[in-house]
Measured scan of single mutants.
Amino acid sequence: QIFVKTLTGKTITLEVEPSDTIENVKAKIQDKEGIPPDQQRLIFAGKQLEDGRTLSDYNIQKESTLHLVL
């Protein structure tokens, strides 16, 4: 699982696999929060994550925290 922290300070927990794409993660966030993926920007280690890449591409491991910017 990974954590996604929103600007409001809320933390969302997501069940993911390293092979999941960023697009996939955004879809999971939409399921939980109702935020359309095209409004979501995910930041990890100061980098904006691209939809077509996977979590493992960015070396995002379990218990990692991503930041969600709208």
Rank of each mutant, 00 (worst) to 15 (best):
L7F: 14
T65R: 05
E17A: 09
V16H: 05
N59E: 07
I29Y: 02
T11W: 08
I35T: 07
L70V: 12
F44I: 03
V16A: 08
G52N: 11
V16W: 13
F44G: 02
D57P: 00
S56D: 08
E63M: 11
E63D: 15
I2C: 03
N24Y: 14
R41D: 06
D20Y: 07
S19C: 14
E50I: 07
K32E: 07
F3R: 06
A45Y: 09
K10E: 08
V4T: 02
Y58T: 02
Q40M: 13
V4G: 01
Y58Q: 03
V16L: 07
S19K: 08
D51E: 09
K28A: 07
P37S: 12
V25W: 01
R41G: 06
V25K: 00
H67M: 13
T54A: 06
T6M: 15
S56C: 08
P37F: 14
N59G: 13
N24E: 15
A27Y: 14
T11S: 07
G52D: 12
D31S: 11
E33S: 11
G46H: 06
L66A: 02
V25M: 05
D57L: 03
N24M: 15
K26G: 01
T65P: 03
T6L: 15
I22D: 00
P18Q: 09
K10C: 13
Q1V: 15
K10T: 09
K32T: 09
N59F: 08
L7H: 14
E17K: 09
G52W: 12
R41S: 10
L7A: 13
V4Y: 02
F44K: 03
N59V: 04
R53T: 06
K62E: 12
A27F: 13
S56V: 08
T11D: 04
D57T: 05
L66K: 01
L55A: 02
E17L: 11
A27C: 13
L42T: 00
G34V: 02
I60C: 03
G9D: 05
D38P: 08
T65M: 10
K47H: 12
L68N: 01
K28N: 03
G46R: 04
L49G: 01
L42C: 01
N24S: 14
S19M: 10
I60Y: 02
L49A: 02
R53P: 04
T21I: 04
D20L: 05
G9I: 02
E63I: 04
F3Y: 14
P18G: 10
F44N: 02
G9L: 04
G34M: 05
A45D: 12
T21N: 04
D20V: 04
Q40D: 01
I29A: 02
Q1M: 13
Y58S: 03
P37K: 14
K32A: 13
L49T: 03
E33F: 11
T21F: 08
N24K: 12
D31M: 12
K5I: 15
Q61T: 13
L49I: 04
V69C: 13
P37V: 14
K62F: 15
E15T: 12
T65I: 12
V69N: 06
D51C: 06
F3C: 05
I2T: 02
L49N: 00
A45V: 06
T6D: 06
Q1Y: 15
D31T: 10
Q40L: 06
L70W: 12
T8W: 13
L7T: 12
P18E: 09
I43V: 10
I22C: 03
T6Q: 07
N24G: 09
P36K: 07
L42F: 03
F3W: 06
Q48N: 10
T13H: 07
T8P: 05
F3A: 04
P37D: 04
K28L: 10
S56Y: 11
K28G: 03
T54E: 03
T11F: 10
K47N: 11
K47C: 12
E23A: 14
Q1W: 15
Q1I: 15
R53Y: 14
K26F: 03
K5P: 01
L66F: 04
K5M: 14
I2M: 05
D38F: 12
D57H: 13
E63W: 13
N24D: 13
T8Q: 11
E15G: 07
S19N: 13
L70C: 13
L68S: 01
Q39N: 10
Q1D: 05
I29D: 00
I60K: 01
I12R: 02
I43H: 11
L70Y: 11
I29N: 00
I60T: 02
Y58N: 02
K62W: 12
K10P: 05
L66C: 01
T13N: 06
I35L: 06
Q39M: 11
Q61R: 09
G46M: 04
Q61M: 10
L49M: 06
I43P: 00
I12E: 01
D31N: 10
D38T: 11
D57F: 15
L70K: 07
G46V: 02
I22Y: 01
V25T: 03
T6E: 04
R41F: 12
L42W: 01
L49S: 00
S64Y: 09
T8F: 13
N59I: 04
L68Q: 02
I12P: 00
N59M: 08
L66N: 01
E23G: 13
F44D: 01
G52F: 12
I29L: 07
L68M: 08
L68D: 00
T8G: 11
R41N: 09
T21V: 05
V16Y: 15
T8M: 11
E15M: 15
L7Q: 14
L68P: 00
E63H: 14
H67V: 14
I60G: 01
Q61E: 10
Q30W: 15
I2Q: 01
G46T: 04
L66T: 02
D57R: 03
K47W: 07
Y58F: 04
D20H: 06
T13S: 09
T13K: 08
Q30A: 14
Q40C: 08
E15H: 13
L66V: 08
P18H: 07
V25L: 12
K5F: 07
L66E: 01
G9S: 04
Q39W: 10
R53Q: 09
D31G: 10
R41H: 11
R41A: 08
H67R: 08
N24V: 14
L68T: 02
L55N: 00
L68V: 05
E17V: 12
L42I: 07
G52E: 10
Q48C: 15
E33W: 14
Q1F: 15
G52C: 12
I22H: 01
T13I: 13
Y58R: 01
R41P: 01
K26S: 01
Q39P: 02
T6W: 13
R53V: 07
V69G: 06
T13V: 12
L42R: 00
D51G: 07
Q39G: 06
T6S: 07
E23W: 15
K5G: 03
A45W: 08
Q61N: 10
L66M: 05
F44H: 06
F44E: 01
F3D: 03
T21D: 03
K28C: 05
D57W: 12
L55P: 01
V16N: 02
P37H: 10
Q40T: 05
E23K: 11
G9P: 02
I60L: 04
T65D: 04
F3M: 06
K32H: 09
K5R: 14
Q48K: 08
A45Q: 15
L68H: 01
L70I: 12
K26I: 03
T8I: 08
K10A: 08
G52H: 13
V4K: 00
Q30T: 10
I2Y: 05
G34S: 06
E63R: 07
P37N: 07
Q40P: 01
Q39K: 10
T65N: 04
